[in-house]
């Protein structure tokens, strides 16, 4: 049983899949590996506690509350309207720079909330729900947490959120998962008062430095979690580029061809017949040379 959650001390078998999405007991996502034959301490190691505030549900709730407080306090001067203007937030980029893992537009509207989400890191895709709650204008209007289509940014994120519940649900269902609480709180109404103003000022807090808290807590797990999403398009683009580069004759359709002259020139073998089915008949240099040794 070599893996132990550094948060609650729960132990997992080697190769356990449970821990892949965070500790089901406490939502922690740091584990210590204990090689075969070594003793697994019953208590989690003190050396690397991710959170000073304790563990488990209390910890998560406490952390969320702290963040809410931070947001509220730092954003007092910011009115909801001005807060809704994400473009003004460049000064807040330090906070965002720690959260870019999630990558996309979420950055502007929900940078600060992205921070907390990524810091728990167990499911970066869940960062979506955060932006839903944030906007005070919606709250003020008595709107639900669910996104509206009025704001493009919110809406975009909200759609992700709509997709997210599957994983989020699993996490929250698992217990006091940190991510679940952070993200799900506003949605499930467990902390309806807090998140509303906090989130409402999220873009503002973004600019005013509230992200410090999340930033300091975001050691990078979130980045790892979201990497695959960003890698996918890059790989396919790269593959496309390589294909473009290495293909000497591209058959667009019968009778329509694109030729890569440098490729044709560089190749030792050369094409002497194009077949209807897209195959080539090529002249192989070895045969060529073998047949006419006397050729200068």
């Amino acid at each position: 049983m070599p893996h132990q959650c550094t948060n609650c001390g729960r132990v997992f078998d080697d190769g356990s899949k449970e821990m892949l999405s965070g500790c089901p007991g406490c939502g922690g996502n740091t584990f210590q590996f204990h090689p075969e034959g070594t003793d697994v301490p019953s208590e989690p190691p003190d050396a690397e506690p991710p959170d000073p505030e304790g563990s488990g549900t209390a910890n998560t709730v406490g952390r969320a509350a702290t963040r809410v407080r931070d947001f509220v306090s730092t954003d007092d001067p910011v009115t909801p309207d001005s807060a809704s203007g994400p473009p003004e937030s460049p000064p807040g980029t330090p906070g965002r720079s720690d959260a870019p893992s999630t990558g996309d537009d979420a950055g502007t509207a929900s940078a600060s909330t992205t921070g907390p989400a990524t810091d728990t890191g167990s499911n970066a895709g869940d960062t979506g729900p955060d932006p839903n709650t944030p906007w005070p204008s919606e709250r003020d209007d008595g709107g639900e947490d669910l996104p509206t289509d009025e704001d493009g940014i919110i809406d975009a994120d909200a759609r992700e959120a709509a997709r997210a519940p599957d994983t989020a649900g699993m996490e929250t269902g698992g217990g006091s998962d940190a991510t679940g609480t952070d993200n799900g709180g506003p949605l499930d109404g467990s902390a309806p008062d807090g998140p509303a103003p906090a989130a409402g000022s999220s873009s503002g807090s973004d600019a005013s430095g509230a992200p410090n808290a999340p930033a300091s807590e975001a050691p990078g797990e979130g980045r790892v979690a979201s990497t695959p999403d960003e890698d996918q398009p890059d790989i396919s683009e790269l593959r496309e580029q390589l294909n473009d580069q290495f293909e000497s004759i591209k058959i667009l359709e019968p009778g329509q061809y694109e030729l890569n002259l440098m490729e044709l020139y560089d190749r030792e073998e050369y094409i002497i017949a194009l077949q209807e089915n897209g195959r080539y008949v090529i002249q192989v240099p070895e045969q060529w040379l073998g047949d006419q040794p006397g050729d200068a």
Partner: peptide, 21 residues
């Protein structure tokens, strides 16, 4: 005929490039 001519022309370009080399 046009499609066949197109295919032959493409082969011809490939051949011309090879001969240049």
């Amino acid at each position: 005929d046009a499609i066949r001519r197109s295919r032959e022309a493409t082969e011809g370009v490939a051949e011309a490039m090879h001969w240049l080399r």
